[in-house]
Design a protein around this nucleic acid. Structure first.
Lengths: 165, 165
DNA sequence: CAATATAACTGGACAGTGTACAGTTCGACA
DNA sequence: TGTCGAACTGTACACTGTCCAGTTATATTG
């Protein structure tokens, strides 16, 4: 069912992802879906988290942890862009909260800690990086702009400055 | 009509902002609205741009242009949060493109230029800052996290680094 | 094997959505 | 006074997500 939903999204786009169309593609009555999933929101959530499985997880003990974070976020960005129709859904659902999303978050926290980021600042840094990746994927700017701004962000995070307010 | 739409949004939320409800609040048949606006998207666009009129425009010749950018973005963030129901719409419509949005963009470009940012990097920096503000407003994190990460971003932008990829 | 519990399905419906079409009312202006 | 055009109405279409009651098929028991 998740697979059919993914296919449907790829073929018919965000607008085409409807319970009825999904049921049609499974040769089933629309309400039969509700035996497998409580509602469309939950289906979408599952779709979002599953998709995050493709994000690259660099080793936690990488030589340069900050570069590893950069690789991770770039991979996230690429994965998001690989299914552009999914991006508005990440926004509408405020990210993903399934097992894949949580594993990625934990992984990133570990890398940030190893990069010497103040522990108290880690959650904020994680959120910032996630918002940054999803936001950029949403506004689909050229990839170079994303890379540049990711560099800006990591520079700032690494130096731990926070005046200017 | 825009006013009624704004009120309706405030009272009934994002979900309650429907053409039919808007028509009802104006004591008019639903399709009468289409004499004034081509469709719901355009109505929403107008709503979004109008709302940006509340963003603070610091003087372009401020002593510290980078601090002025920070003030501008903080004000944007506050304005966005003042109408949380509008935020998902900014995302869905990929920002605003009306006169207010354009004026703000031009203003920011001028400030970034005065702050010594490489002219070629200005559009990217502008987009980055906008994505950052809208993204944070969307994920509604504590305000302090926004401020901190804005500091990170501006630090990076000002130093013009872009390695790490 | 037969009986039963349970998961998966169906038909039909409800209340809503944005919007198109054709036709009417009405105020402003020549 | 006559005409024009904007603003409106009634009706309708093709959708949406989801609920309810009832049916079928499958799996698990006695």
């Amino acid at each position: 069912m998740l697979g059919a939903a993914r296919e449907l999204l790829a073929e018919a786009g965000l607008r085409g992802l409807t319970m009825r169309a999904l049921a049609r593609s499974l040769d089933v009555a629309p309400n039969a879906l509700y035996s497998h999933v409580p509602g469309k929101d939950e289906l979408v959530d599952a779709l979002l988290d599953e998709h995050l499985g493709a994000v690259e997880n660099p080793p936690v003990d990488a030589a340069d942890p900050l570069a590893a974070v950069a690789r991770m976020m770039t991979s996230t960005y690429d994965v998001l862009l690989a299914a552009p129709d999914l991006v508005p859904l990440y926004l509408a659902r405020r990210g993903a909260r399934g097992p894949n999303a949580q594993a990625l978050g934990a992984h990133m926290d570990a890398l940030l800690a190893r990069a010497g980021v103040d522990p108290a600042a880690i959650p904020g840094a994680r959120i910032t990086l996630i918002v940054h990746a999803i936001g950029f994927a949403s506004f689909d700017e050229p990839r170079a702009v994303f890379a540049t701004s990711l560099g800006w962000l990591l520079t700032g995070i690494a130096r731990g400055e926070e005046s200017l307010t």
